[in-house]
């Protein structure tokens, strides 16, 4: 085999500056677009049913109003007013539900922008979210003029941390009530009912702190999210508890824990629930 030639550099002609290499890296590594599965069969059937119900009831109402007008004009107007008021209230309720449900989606949008590192979308979304917060809540100012990590840190310190403290306070208040209820309640069945009602109310209260006013659909969606986050909170809690038990296992500690355990479990669940609800509603992930 002949010896390979020594290394060398062969300059290109002309000697003018060449363009930097471009490997088309951004395109090559772009995240795969999520598969759009479209509407599920159940969703389509539900939508169809809703259109049928609403459409036919509107048509039926229209026919009925027209028939009333044919009998007497004043009768027609009164029927029309009743129909308009009834449908107006139904539509207002649906609209409110939709708004409550979509507000949760906005939380996801802010979180997604944060995860993607989409600075422009995140900044805009944070400002929109701050605008929706209840009156009297401290807001971070000047977000547009600072680096995004500083803006996130400021929102966390100015708004999210106080909200978390308020959520904790709501949780403690609910815990005291839960503690009292388990003490005086005549039957365990009633315990469960009262506890569930108090829990749902607590979740809605915490959501309101974050500027969310969920209706029925929103509350159901929120409870699903809280259930997921509760797993997070509970798992950490279990691990910490296991460690504490390991460290503090003594007869006295066990005795004290045993005495207070019965009532404390219910109370403690409320505090956990408040933390999980806060976790589910916060626009930025906890650092």
């Amino acid at each position: 085999m002949s010896a390979a030639p020594p290394p060398r550099v062969i300059l290109e002609e002309p000697a003018s500056a060449a363009q930097r290499l471009d490997f088309g890296w951004e395109v090559a590594v772009a995240p795969a677009a999520p598969i759009d599965r479209g509407w599920s069969s159940l969703g389509l059937a539900g939508l169809g049913l809703a259109v049928l119900l609403l459409g036919f009831s509107l048509l039926e109402a229209g026919n009925f109003v027209a028939a009333q007008f044919s009998q007497a004009a004043w009768l027609g107007w009164v029927t029309l007013a009743v129909a308009a008021a009834g449908f107006g209230l139904v539509f207002a309720a649906v609209g409110r539900e939709m708004r409550g449900y979509l507000a949760l989606g906005k939380v996801d949008a802010v979180r997604a922008a944060h995860a993607r590192g989409d600075v422009v979308a995140l900044r805009g979304a944070l400002q929109d979210w701050q605008a929706r917060l209840p009156e009297g809540r401290a807001r971070a100012a000047g977000l547009a003029d600072m680096p995004i990590d500083a803006a996130c840190a400021l929102v966390e310190a100015t708004t999210l941390a106080p909200i978390a403290r308020d959520a904790e306070a709501l949780g403690r208040a609910a815990a005291i009530q839960a503690f009292a209820m388990t003490a005086v309640s005549p039957s365990p069945g009633l315990d469960v009912l009262v506890f569930s009602w108090r829990g749902i109310r607590l979740v809605r209260q915490v959501a309101a702190l974050h500027g969310l006013r969920p209706g029925i659909a929103g509350t159901v969606a929120l409870l699903r999210r809280v259930a997921m986050d509760a797993a997070t909170v509970a798992a950490t809690d279990v691990a910490v508890e296991a460690m504490l038990r390991g460290v503090l296992s003594s007869r006295i500690a066990e005795h004290v824990a045993g005495e207070t355990a019965a009532g404390a479990v219910a109370a403690r669940r409320m505090i956990l629930l408040a933390r999980a609800a806060d976790e589910a509603c916060r626009v930025l992930p906890r650092g």
Binding site: A4, V9, I10, L11, E12, S16, A17, A18
Partner: peptide
């Protein structure tokens, strides 16, 4: 230099 070059690095 900002100039294009082909480099043979040897064996």
């Amino acid at each position: 230099e900002g100039r294009g070059a082909t480099i043979y690095p040897g064996e």
